[in-house]
């Protein structure tokens, strides 16, 4: 496997809940991200899935240093970047860029496309000399499949898919090594989603990019990812290659999540077994003790409420699963594999 480019170790992000007007006192914390570790290798795509509110976007923000991590480390090529500020942080930003979810709000409506894509060069003048910038911007437009003559247009003159291409061009401008995609296609039409995904795949090949791809659409994540991590309530519950996760899931939450993927073939649909989880996702301000999923898990036993399951290759499955799963009773589901 390729060298690791981004290593996340026990990353924690808590948002304090305070009480009082003048003298604020902390009464608790929303545990948006609560101890997550994973590694992103060079040239690979790591998909992160999970339902709304599980901390996917917070994870992206912390990795981008848009939010300060409460604890833990983010190592970029072995250097901890989670505590950087000033010039050092600015230098790291050249290598890690982001593509945003909503192409309608992530482009400044008062700037032309040329100004939006050219802005990275103004912030980091060493990347492109002043005279070459217009050319560089036009090249980027060409790379993402837009007409270079659109350089003087405003964002509202483009469709959603085109706007997302502009957002991708802006992310590419600094020639980063890692691009964090925070639900880059969930605001787009289904037909346009495929184009943007294909563009991202092409760019990955051309520029040797590593992607962290956050989404809640399981099909898209499976399509684009080499490895997939499943998050629940601020924790990573299972991580492995796409095949391991999609066909050999061992964590009950992953199995429930996968059983919710729509099956287009009506005859297949009748055969499969849906796992319906009861109850709501608990509040991240007051998560359950032990395993966070136990309140909705059909396998839950006494042990789950007292002992926190660690993300590790399950010992129970001798010779079976090889990927990490955070469950005391990790096991593949017999019927799940049939589909």
């Amino acid at each position: 496997m390729a060298e690791p480019i981004l290593e996340v170790r026990d990353l924690v992000k808590h948002y304090p809940l305070t009480q009082g007007i003048l003298f604020k006192k902390q009464v608790g914390a929303v545990k948006a991200v609560d101890g997550i570790s994973f590694t992103l290798h060079k040239g690979e795509t790591l998909g992160i899935v999970g339902e709304s509110g599980c901390g996917k976007s917070t994870l992206a923000k912390v990795l981008m240093n848009l939010e300060r991590a409460t604890a833990g480390q983010v190592l970029y090529k072995g250097e901890d970047i989670s505590r950087l500020s000033g010039a050092a942080l600015k230098a790291v930003r050249r290598n890690i860029q982001m593509v945003f979810q909503d192409p309608y709000t992530s482009l400044n409506p008062r700037m032309t496309v040329g100004d939006i894509i050219g802005e990275p060069f103004e912030i980091h003048p060493e990347v492109a000399p002043k005279g070459d910038r217009r050319k560089a911007v036009q090249d980027l437009l060409d790379v993402v499949g837009l007409n270079p003559e659109y350089i003087n247009r405003y964002p509202h003159q483009f469709s959603g898919g085109q706007r997302q291409r502009i957002g991708i061009a802006r992310g590419l401008a600094l020639k980063p090594e890692v691009i964090i995609c925070d639900e880059p296609v969930s605001a787009l039409d289904v037909s346009v989603q495929a184009q943007v995904i294909n563009l991202l795949e092409k760019l990955q090949q051309d520029f040797e990019l590593s992607y962290m791809f956050i989404a809640h659409d399981l099909s898209i994540v499976r399509h684009i990812s080499d490895r997939v991590g499943v998050m629940y309530l601020g924790k990573m519950v299972e991580i492995g290659t796409d095949l391991e996760i999609y066909d050999h899931a061992t964590h009950p939450y992953t199995q429930a999540l996968l059983s919710a993927v729509p099956v287009p073939d009506p005859s297949d649909r009748e055969k499969r077994e849906r796992i319906i989880l009861s109850g709501d996702i608990p509040s991240p301000a007051n998560p359950p003790s032990g395993c966070r999923f136990r309140t909705r898990c059909w396998k839950a036993q006494e042990r789950c409420s007292t002992e926190l399951p660690l993300l590790a290759v399950p010992e129970l499955l001798a010779g079976g699963a090889k990927h990490e799963s955070a469950c005391h009773f990790a096991a593949e589901r017999e019927t799940a594999a049939a589909a």
């Binding site: 003159q157 483009f158 469709s159 898919g161 085109q162 289904v190 037909s191 346009v192 989603q193 495929a194 184009q195 995904i197 294909n198 099909s219 898209i220 499976r222 399509h223 796409d242 729509p262 287009p264 073939d265």
Partner: peptide
Amino acid sequence: HLDYVGQQGLAVEQETLI
């Protein structure tokens, strides 16, 4: 994988430029 995505109705269509 492409097949899988295709099943989900993600067939590639040309985006009409406005």
